[in-house]
C-alpha cells in the first residue's frame, strides 16, 4: 500500500525490489556498501547518503564497492551492461562526470548507433546533483543539461519520492543507458509511495497542478519551488499549471505545448546555469511550436552563469526560489504589448 516514505527510502526500495526480481541487477560504486577491506563493519555506509544501505547483506555478491576510480567502475558498469548484467553504478556527485565522461558519452551513449543498432547497454548511472548543501563549486552543480545534450542517453530528474521509485525501476528495466539525477537536498523529502513495484514511463510529463493563467515547467527539485510559488500566486488569483517533465531526455513536448496553448504564458524553472540548459531548450521549443499561442515573452528562472558559490549568503541567491518564480509569473501575466 502507499505509505509516506522519503526520497532516499523510495530509491532504496526500488533498488531492492529490482534486485529481488532480476538477479542480473547489480549495484556498484564508491562505498555503496562501505568499509570494504576495513577492520570494522562492512556495509558501514550504504553509499555516502545511505541510499544503498542494507542491500549488501540482502544480496550477497551483488553490491560492489569500488576504488575511487570513476572511469574504471563507470566503464565497468557499461561493459557489464553489454554482457548481460543490468548494473546500477553510483557516480556519487554529478560533478565527478568530469573524470569519467568519456565512458558515458563516447562509449555507452554511442554503442547502439555506432554499432549499427546491434548493441544493448542497459546501464543506470545514479548521481547526485544540485545546490543547497553548502557543498560549493565542485559538488553542487545541476549538470543534467550536458547529458541531455548527448544522443543515446536518457536523462531522468525525479521530483518526488513517488517519481523517484517509479522512474528508477523504469531506468533499471530500460535497455538504454540512463543517467538518473537525484537532488541531494531531497533525500529526506517524504511523500506517498506504493509498496508494490511500479514504473513511470519515460517521456511522460507529470502535471503537478492545474491552472489556466500560466504554464510553469520545472525540473527536479524546482517542481516543489514552483508549487510554493503557485500557492502564493493563487492567493492573488493567478492559477499556474505546473509541469514536471520527469525526464529531460526524452522530453514530453506535447504536454508542455498543450499547456502553453491553453495558458498562453510560459515560465521555465531550471536550477542549471542559464546557457544551453533545459530552460533555453524548452523556451526554444515553445517559441517555435506554440508561437501563436504566446501572449507574453517567455521567462526563464535559472541559476546565474557562475560556479556554485560556497557561502550561504551567496548560495541562497544562486538557487531559484519561489519568490523569483512568482515574480517571473507576474511579469508574464502582467505583460502588455
Amino acid at each position: 500500500m502507499a505509505r509516506t516514505i522519503s526520497y532516499r527510502e523510495a530509491l532504496g526500495e526500488a533498488l531492492a525490489q529490482e534486485m529481488e526480481r532480476d538477479e542480473s541487477v547489480i549495484v556498484l560504486g564508491e562505498d555503496n556498501a562501505g568499509g570494504a577491506g576495513s577492520p570494522g563493519e562492512d556495509d558501514a555506509w550504504g553509499g555516502v547518503l545511505g541510499v544503498t544501505k542494507g542491500l549488501y547483506h540482502r544480496f550477497p555478491g551483488r553490491v560492489l564497492d569500488t576504488p575511487i576510480s570513476e572511469s574504471a567502475f563507470v566503464g565497468a558498469a557499461i561493459g557489464a551492461a553489454t554482457s548481460g548484467l543490468r548494473p546500477v553504478a553510483e557516480l556519487m556527485f554529478i560533478d565527478f562526470m568530469g573524470v569519467c565522461f568519456d565512458q558515458i558519452f563516447n562509449q555507452a551513449a554511442k554503442f547502439r548507433y555506432m554499432f549499427g543498432g546491434k548493441a544493448k547497454t542497459p546501464v543506470v548511472i545514479r548521481t547526485m546533483y544540485g545546490a543547497g548543501l553548502r557543498a560549493a563549486a565542485q559538488h553542487s552543480q545541476a549538470l543534467y543539461p550536458i547529458f541531455t545534450h548527448i544522443p543515446g542517453l536518457k536523462v531522468v530528474v525525479p521530483s518526488s519520492p513517488y517519481e523517484a521509485k517509479g522512474l528508477l525501476i523504469q531506468s533499471i528495466r530500460d535497455d538504454d543507458p540512463v543517467i538518473f539525477c537525484e537532488h541531494k537536498a531531497m533525500y529526506d523529502v517524504t511523500g506517498d509511495v506504493p509498496e508494490d513495484s511500479y514504473t513511470i514511463p519515460f517521456g511522460e510529463a507529470g502535471v503537478v497542478r492545474d491552472g489556466d493563467d500560466v504554464t510553469i515547467v520545472a525540473i527536479g527539485r524546482m517542481v516543489s519551488v514552483a508549487e510554493e510559488a503557485a500557492k502564493q500566486l493563487a492567493e492573488s488569483g493567478v492559477e499556474a499549471e505546473i509541469i514536471d517533465p520527469r525526464t529531460t531526455s526524452p522530453l514530453d513536448t506535447e504536454t508542455i505545448l498543450e499547456s502553453v496553448e491553453n495558458t498562453g504564458r510560459l515560465v521555465v524553472v531550471d536550477e542549471a546555469t542559464p546557457r544551453c540548459n533545459l530552460a533555453t531548450d524548452i523556451s526554444a521549443l515553445v517559441a517555435k511550436e506554440a508561437f501563436g499561442s504566446l501572449r507574453a515573452p517567455i521567462e526563464m528562472v535559472t541559476a546565474p552563469h557562475t560556479p556554485v558559490p560556497f557561502s550561504d549568503a551567496l548560495e541562497d541567491l544562486y538557487i531559484p526560489d519561489a519568490q523569483r518564480v512568482a515574480n517571473a509569473v507576474k511579469t508574464v501575466v502582467e505583460w502588455k504589448r
Binding site: 566503464g75 561493459g79 557489464a80 553489454t82 554499432f115 548493441a119
Partner: peptide, 29 residues
C-alpha cells in the same frame, strides 16, 4: 567502430584508453 557483440567483439574504439574499463565490465559479468 567496427563491432560484433554477438562474437564478443566490443568494438574498435576511437578513444585511446576507452576499452580497458569496459573490459572490467565484461569480465565482471
Amino acid at each position: 567502430h567496427i563491432a560484433d557483440l554477438s562474437k564478443g567483439m566490443l568494438g574498435a574504439n576511437g578513444i585511446v584508453g576507452g576499452g580497458p574499463p569496459l573490459i572490467c565490465g565484461t569480465a565482471l559479468a
